[in-house]
Simulated assay, not measured.
Amino acid sequence: MDERTVGVVVRILPNPEQREGFHQNFGCVRKAYNETLGKYNALYEKDKSIRPTYTFLNKLMMESKKKLPYLDAMESTSLQQSIRDLSRGFDNFLKNRHFNYPKFHSKKENRNSFRQTIPANKKIINKNKLSLRRYGEVRFRTSPEYMELLNSSDIKFNNVTIAYDGIHYYAIINITTDLPENLPLTGEKIGCDINSNINGWLVTSDDVKEFFDINHENQMIKHINRLMSRCRKLSRRWKKLQKRLQKWYNKRTNKLKDYIEKLTYNLVKEYDVIVFEENYATIKILIGGEQNMVFPLSQFIQRLKNKFELYKPQAEGVVFVDAKNTSKTCHHCGHINKELDVKTRHWICPECGEKLDRDVNAAINILNRWSPGDSLENTQ
């Protein structure tokens, strides 16, 4: 059977000594990355022919370890992985113009994390305990489904990333396992119109409107920010409110991720073809009241593609069509209402008298413009 590589996220419960060691490693990984990037930049200024290969960058990092003894005291594979990330950043920059030149990591802008490699054929999971180099066994929590998967003898462990979000500690365990069974083909297809969240951010040709509500989370974030503005910075109350604020940020992010995962799976399970307008990446969807959050459309559609590849590789999957005049064209008779403005959500076709919902009508037209085998490439 074919294999796939996946990451399983579990919440870990380190003891005080392990937590202290994690934070030391977070700082050392960031320091090794920044020292290596700084040294390469200085050398490149003198000699433009120097290439940022992993071997060369790792050599620069080893020189830093000699001058900074505390780096040498850290777990070695996590430092090497940070240099591998830097090397990958340079490769992306040199090969693709959409990637930026690698930047220095700051404590504020970059998440606290480090990654350890795992020797071949080594099992690092024993029931509810995760074995880490240097730090020993750490208890973790996860769902019964993932607990069974991680304790299975059929998987291969590749690496593990330890991360801290300001409140909780997590382990992202990279494993290789068998592909899941394919979902059966349904023969169903659907058109999707991207819209504002007020009228349903996603409207389908089946007259289903998807809403995503994080207004409560946004209001709590706004409220806590207001309370923090009245406190002296770094005071005991300010620090307490900061943790509370981080908690609500995490809730909002997790709610969004969970929503995307569940919705994409359900769509892939029910439909074989999902048709979108080709310019979806240029549309911003604002969610909530005064504090808006832009819905990650590109991430949503990429997850759809991934799930089709994983669960229904034989299906047509996600396709794109030209969406010009799909809102203004009556799907019943084909008449184009050129006088239709953006604010009008419901209209009656002057040609055939059909009552139309602007967004559902657009979704039906998007579906009708697709024929099997035809698709426009995403230009993003």
Rank of each mutant, 00 (worst) to 15 (best):
G27C: 11
L376E: 05
E109G: 03
T142I: 01
L149H: 00
G38F: 13
D154N: 06
G289I: 07
C349V: 07
N158A: 12
K324V: 05
E188N: 14
E278V: 13
F99P: 10
M228R: 15
K307C: 09
C28N: 06
Q219G: 15
N110H: 15
V160S: 07
I118C: 12
R252Y: 03
D213V: 07
A315E: 02
A171V: 04
N151M: 02
Y44K: 12
W201N: 15
P144Y: 00
E309C: 12
Q18I: 04
V6G: 03
D85E: 10
G373R: 03
D258G: 03
E17S: 11
G353T: 11
F22S: 10
M1T: 03
A42D: 14
P16E: 13
E145T: 02
I274T: 14
D357M: 15
P16R: 10
N250D: 04
Y259R: 14
K239Y: 07
Y170F: 10
V360N: 10
I224M: 05
G353E: 09
M228C: 06
T55H: 05
Q81N: 11
N34H: 04
I167P: 02
S235H: 10
V318G: 11
H216N: 08
P372N: 13
A120G: 06
L256C: 07
V160H: 12
L37N: 01
Y259V: 08
E137H: 09
P184S: 05
I167C: 01
R111E: 08
K239G: 04
T329A: 01
D258I: 01
L185Y: 12
S131N: 12
Q302H: 12
A120D: 13
I50K: 06
V273H: 09
I224S: 12
S106A: 08
R134Q: 15
E35Q: 11
V203E: 03
G191M: 09
G89D: 13
E316Y: 00
P350W: 00
F212G: 02
R30C: 05
I155F: 03
F300H: 09
K122W: 11
I162H: 03
S106P: 00
V321C: 09
K305A: 08
L286S: 05
L202N: 06
T36E: 03
Y54F: 11
E377Y: 11
K65M: 15
T177E: 12
K59E: 06
I336T: 06
K251T: 04
G136W: 05
N110Q: 07
D178S: 01
V8D: 00
S235A: 05
T53L: 10
I125G: 09
Y280K: 08
Q219C: 09
I283H: 13
E148N: 09
A315C: 10
E148T: 07
E309W: 00
R226L: 13
E145W: 00
S152N: 01
N112T: 03
K269A: 01
Y280A: 14
A281W: 12
V319I: 02
D91L: 09
